[in-house]
Design a protein around this nucleic acid. Structure first.
Length: 619
DNA sequence: TTAGGCTTCG
């Protein structure tokens, strides 16, 4: 059964068969070589060329594409639509489109198809044997057997004809991967007040960021770009600038010229694209990301979220602001986030739990209940923890009690963090905070040590040691190169940084070593003996015990008498899934469910901390 | 209505 709804109205043109009892068989598709000028038709075709939607001189966005089918005819299609969502979601040449209610017109002695009253377009991947999933903003598209047969046939035909055997796209590594460009990249002087984000002129960022000059019509897209967005450029031109000075190397420049010729355009990729790509190796970057994809540091990075997440006490550590203000969101170290913890207390808590006795506690009307061995009472909503003697406290009493103190509380969730799951929402066991090691190291070196892995064709896998540069540069380097170990010079020998700093950066993530469990520096093996196979092996070779990331939730609890910020380690990942229940975003605090919790108060370095323990989600 | 592919601020 076909049910489509185009971006125009859903009315039917009289020249299309009525759809009262429409089925697959009743939708007629016209081969592209049989189009008659003046008729409104439905067609299937393989895309051989397309331009992304751009602003017409009228009121709509317009996109153009050329399609072909088994008849061999090639037909240009013009689509007008108010919004970007109205237009086909084309990814690459070879995609298959199903056009409904397009009018055949004559232009320059050729037949063209133009979106007509009630038109619709659906896109499918042209990859043989790939799932047949309609790509459309319309939710009402369903695909019948006829469509599947038609799409399979077109895919097979395109494959047999080798229509797209030569990729129209250029891989990152074959053009520029940010590290191996033969030429230095051209930089430009831009007025500081015209730039959003950091200055990319720093010498140590050379060839890690690229300026791209964007002209005329492309400003419409470019002016809305924000740092951190993932971009796709079509028909980006790389030009070697003429020698400015004798003996100076030629510089490479990038231009997105005026107009839309050859599909020239710029678009933002959805955030998922970044998620999909940031874990890939350089030479695994999919071809469909176009001629060039790069994190647009050249546009200027964002640091708003990073700053917002700094804890209050970071004001006592100005280096934290200084060091992180130039980072992109995914570079913000989790340890300067809202989840600074006092994990030393974890062991303390665990020990103390063993001594707990059973206890009678108030009725549980929330979705949490205390454990272990929670026992059902008369009410099906009630469970009680009978494991220990903790007293029931109000939060006011909790705050005025002297730690260490184990107690039972009943409270509501006023707020919690993290609301978005990422590495930032995790805490490293045993790791407290990042110190100022980066600056403490003092001197800045430009030297980068490289340790090649085994020689593979097309392999970009290397392990880099980087010395004496800023955290921002290390992060940027890791994004380009994959694995970067920050090092310092000790008695003219390369040595690891203090373990308060990350031991290794792996693309967007950073991994820490444990000060206690790793071998001291003097017993470390020669760095160049390391075979960079994987993170664990690298750590093992350098005698570093990697720390483990643990998911951590921080609650702001409220019971009417006071509030308490409490951390949760145990079952945090499971409890996170209940947050919509215990913290419904559309309900005021008074209407949120109560939770019965077991709370442990303890001190770390003179500060009182609270941790939720012995608590689990009620089944 | 608009665009109707078909290079560029070297």
């Amino acid at each position: 059964m076909l049910s489509t709804k185009g971006p125009g109205t859903s009315g039917l043109d009289g020249k299309v068969p009525p759809s009262a009892k429409r089925t697959d068989k009743q939708v007629q598709y016209v081969p592209l070589n049989e189009l008659k000028v003046g008729t409104v038709v439905n067609v299937y075709g393989v895309v051989t060329f397309f331009k992304l939607p751009f602003s017409s001189k009228g009121t709509d966005l317009v996109s153009t594409l050329k399609i072909t089918d088994e008849s061999g005819a090639k037909v240009t299609c013009i689509i007008f639509g108010k919004t970007i969502e109205d237009h086909p979601s084309l990814k690459e040449k070879g995609d298959i489109v199903r056009l409904h209610r397009f009018k055949a017109e004559s232009f320059n002695d050729s037949v063209t198809l133009k979106s007509s009253f009630g038109w619709s377009v659906v896109t499918f991947s042209g990859v043989n044997n790939s799932p047949i999933v309609p790509l459309t903003s319309s939710k009402k598209v369903s695909i019948g057997e006829f469509d599947e047969r038609k799409i399979c046939a077109l895919r097979q035909w395109a494959a047999d004809e080798s229509l797209f055997c030569q990729s129209s796209k250029t891989t990152l590594s074959s053009v520029w991967d940010g590290t191996r460009c033969e030429y230095p990249l051209q930089s430009y002087t831009v007025a500081s007040d015209a730039v959003e984000g950091e200055d990319t002129e720093a010498k140590d960022r050379r060839n890690l960021t690229a300026y791209i000059l964007v002209y005329d019509n492309h400003l419409e897209v470019a002016r809305d770009l924000k740092p951190g967005m993932f971009l796709q450029f079509y028909n980006l031109r790389a030009v070697l600038a003429k020698d400015l000075l004798p003996n100076e190397p030629q510089h490479l420049t990038f231009h997105l010229h005026s107009g839309t010729s050859f599909g020239r355009s710029l678009r933002r990729l959805p955030d998922e694209a970044l998620e999909q790509h940031k874990d890939l190796n350089d030479d695994e970057v999919p071809e469909d990301v176009g001629a060039f994809c790069t994190r647009p540091e050249a546009v200027g990075p964002s640091y708003g979220r990073g700053l917002r997440r700094l804890p209050d006490d970071s004001t006592h550590e100005p280096w934290a602001l200084e060091q992180h203000k130039d980072l992109n969101d995914d570079e913000v170290p989790e340890d300067v986030g809202a989840f600074c913890t006092r994990p030393e207390a974890v062991g303390q808590v665990l020990v103390k739990q063993q001594d707990l006795n059973k206890d009678e506690v108030p009725k549980d009307v929330g979705v949490f209940c205390r454990q272990p061995e929670a026992v059902e009472t008369d009410s099906c909503t009630v469970r009680a923890c009978k494991q220990h003697h903790a007293q029931h406290f109000t939060l006011e009493q909790v705050r005025s009690s002297t730690p260490p103190q184990l107690c039972h509380i009943r409270a509501r969730v006023k707020d919690y963090q993290p609301q978005q799951l990422s590495q930032k929402g995790q805490a490293r066991v045993k790791q407290r905070f990042l110190n100022s090691m980066w600056e403490a190291d003092g001197s800045r070196f430009d030297q980068i040590h490289r340790k090649r892995q085994f020689v593979f064709m097309n392999s970009h896998e290397e392990l880099k040691f980087i010395q004496g540069t800023s955290l921002g540069v290390v992060c940027a380097s890791a994004r380009c190169w994959g694995r970067v170990i920050p090092v310092r010079a000790v008695n003219e020998k390369m040595a690891l940084m203090d373990f308060f700093a990350p031991f290794i950066f792996y693309r967007g993530k950073r991994f820490y070593g444990c000060q206690k469990c790793s071998l001291p520096e003097e017993e470390r093996r020669d760095f160049f003996a390391v075979e960079p196979l994987d993170l664990l092996k690298i750590a093992e070779a350098l005698r570093v015990q990697l720390m483990e990331y643990r998911f951590l939730l921080q609650f702001e609890l409220d019971d009417g008498t006071g509030t308490v910020d409490a951390l949760l380690w145990e079952n945090a990942d499971k409890i996170r899934k209940t947050m919509d229940t215990v913290h419904p975003p559309d309900k005021p605090l008074e209407e949120r469910p109560w939770m019965d919790l077991c709370l442990f108060a303890y001190t770390v370095e003179g500060n009182v901390c609270y941790q939720i323990v012995n608590t689990k989600v009620k089944e």
